[in-house]
Each structure stands twice: as C-alpha cells, then as structure tokens.
Simulated scan of single mutants.
Amino acid sequence: MTKSLDRTELGLLLALPILIGLAFILPKWIVNYMQVSMGTGLVALGVMIQMRAGLVSFGQGLYFCIGGYAAGMAAKFWGITDLFLLLILGLVGAVLVSSILGILMRRYREIFYAMLSLALSMILFGLLSSTEELGSTDGFNLPTPTYLGWAPEGRAALLSLYIITSCLVIACALALHRFLQSPVGYVNEAIRENELRVEYLGTSAHRLVQITYMLAASVSAIGGVLWALALGHVDPEMTNWTTSGQFVFVAILSGIGNIAAPLIGTFILEIVRVYAVEISPNTWQMILGTVMLLTILFLPKGLWSLVSKMGNKQKSTDGDAAQSVGG
C-alpha cells in the first residue's frame, strides 16, 4: 500500500511550480541567487540529516567539491557536457569515496567526528590547491550544460538549468524526508539520544551511521554539480573549512525540525550576505556572525521553530474553538 503524502511533502510539491513560476517574474539576479542557494541547500540538507543522528560534519564541503570537480573534470578532459551524465559521475564519485571513508567515520562521535570530517576535507583542499592541471587555487571553468543532446542558448539555457535544478532539489528533499520518516531515520534519532540502548536492541549503530553518511555525501555531491554548473566554475574553496562551516551555519540558522528548513535558510543566508557586503564590504562577516549569535540566543532551535510555534498556536486555537462549540 502506497504511503499517503503528509503536509511537508505536499508543501514541497506545491513549492515546485511556484519556484519555476518565480523565474519568469523576479529579477534575474534574484533568480540566480535562488539557483545557487538550491545547490548549496542540498549540502545543508546533508549536514542536517547527520545532525538528526547527533553528528556534526565540519567537512561536508568534501563531497560538495567531489561533485563539482567530477563534473568539471569530465567536461574538461572528456568533453562531456550532458547534465544528467555529469550528475551520475558526481554521484558515483561521492558514493565510492563515502563508502570507503564511512568505514572510518562511523566509529567516531561528537567532536571527533566533526574534526575528522574537517581534516579529510582539508586534505582534498591541499591536493587541489597544488594541482596545476586543475588550475591550482584558481580552479577552472565549466561549459554550458546540454540535456540529452539538446543545447539551449541564451535565456533558454539559464531557464532550463534553473527548472531542472528546482525539480532535482525538490525530488531530493522528498526522498530525504521519506528517509527521516523511515525506521532508519527514527533509529538515527535514537542513536543521538542513547546509542548504547540501540545496540542492546540488536541494531548496529555503526552501520546506520555509515548509511546516513553515504546518503549525506550523495546529496551533497548532487548539490556540488548543480552549483558548479550554475556558476560555470569550480575551485578548491568548495572544500575549504570556511565553506563547510557555512553549511553548518545554515543548518543551525534554519533548524533541523523540517526538511524544508535548510533550503529556506540557505536562501536567507545568501540574501543576508548580499546586503551585508553592500552595507559593509570589509566587515560583512561581522554582520553574519551577529545574525548567527542572535539566532542561537533567541531561537536555539533555528528559524523553523517560529513556524512550529505558529502551527502549535493555530492548533491550540482550533482546539479551543472546537471545545467551545462542543460545550
């Protein structure tokens, strides 16, 4: 029997035509930021599903970079420009690397997990920065993608990539939501609360952590491919600690209460960054830091907690009204 759609899934499905329609209404620069934020939003989703298991990855840029560079190298050295084939290559690269590193990562928790993930991402950063064939610290450009032999130009090329990005992001969000609602997703929360009890129940916490790690790597690589194609460029900064820190920033800023939260939080971060740079070009990081500090102080569960409070308040109001009518 097919599982019915819940409110989150319905909301995501309704968001897709809205996202596509906005591309024809909003200014080009806003649409561009929306497209870029959807790519990085997938990486933030990867961070979020690990946080559900009590794991904080400060090196998620590793797979963000693997996805982008896999697509870039395939285009640069093999002349592959088909978006779907580039996505497959980026995904395969992330799965292979995460399946190996996951054997190591699944043994660690808390600060050790965070620091080890950071160390692995910085190893890749060092390798790419010293590889002249890949542009060293400057990176290299990517060509305009094609779609199963179709090669649009001008505005059609921009709209095509935006629409496909929107569809892929919503599809990934739906899949991750189903994952969090699955037995594995619920056991991840149990691992966060008391891993020893999970082991006593006969479930391998190490195996489930590796599954979550690989899933987060896969969705992050997809985000890396989409981000790289949107900007037409890749460079080692994709796996630098500052980039990985940004994804953690988004997860904390938006909260982990709903799968849509990191996607919305990523766009908010992009807009805050734009205006912060405009207001204070030399100290814009202070503005982002202030936003982060205020969020932690007044919304410790993230911006999504505002939506949750509004929903709970509405339910309470409806319940009181029903009780009054019944009385």
Results as ranks from 00 to 15, higher is better:
Q246D: 13
L263F: 12
A261N: 02
P236A: 01
A251I: 14
A205Q: 04
I256K: 02
T243C: 08
N258G: 08
I259F: 12
T266N: 06
V250K: 00
A260E: 09
G223S: 05
G232T: 11
A230I: 02
F249N: 04
A251G: 13
G255T: 09
S220A: 14
S254I: 03
A230D: 11
S218C: 13
L269Q: 07
E270R: 12
W241R: 07
A230V: 08
L231T: 13
I268D: 09
Q210E: 14
A221T: 05
G245M: 12
V234M: 01
P236I: 01
I268N: 06
N258C: 14
L226G: 06
S244Y: 13
T239E: 07
R207M: 15
I264G: 06
A230M: 05
A260R: 00
T203R: 15
A230C: 10
G255R: 00
F249A: 03
P262M: 03
P236F: 03
I222W: 03
Q210C: 06
W227R: 00
A216Q: 02
G224C: 12
L263A: 11
L263G: 11
T243A: 08
V209M: 14
M214G: 03
L208Q: 06
H233D: 04
I256L: 02
L231F: 14
N258S: 14
G245P: 06
S220P: 05
A251M: 11
G202P: 07
L229Y: 01
T212D: 08
L226P: 12
P262K: 08
Q210P: 02
A261R: 08
L229D: 04
T266G: 10
I256Q: 04
A251S: 13
L229M: 14
M238G: 09
G245R: 08
L226T: 02
I256H: 03
L253G: 06
I259W: 10
F267G: 00
G224N: 06
M238N: 04
T239K: 14
E237C: 12
A216I: 12
A230H: 04
Y213D: 06
V272A: 07
D235G: 15
D235R: 03
E237Y: 10
L231M: 15
I271V: 10
P262L: 10
A205L: 05
G223Y: 01
I259N: 14
A205R: 00
T243L: 08
A216L: 10
L208D: 07
I211W: 12
N240E: 10
A217F: 05
G245W: 05
D235P: 09
L253W: 05
Y213V: 13
A217C: 11
T239W: 01
A205K: 02
L253C: 12
A221S: 12
G232N: 07
L253Y: 05
I222R: 01
R207C: 13
I271W: 03
I211A: 08
L208Y: 07
G257Q: 04
W227C: 03
F249T: 05
A228S: 10
S218Q: 09
S220Y: 01
V234S: 06
T243Q: 15
L226C: 11
I256Y: 01
S204W: 15
H206T: 14
E237K: 14
F267H: 04
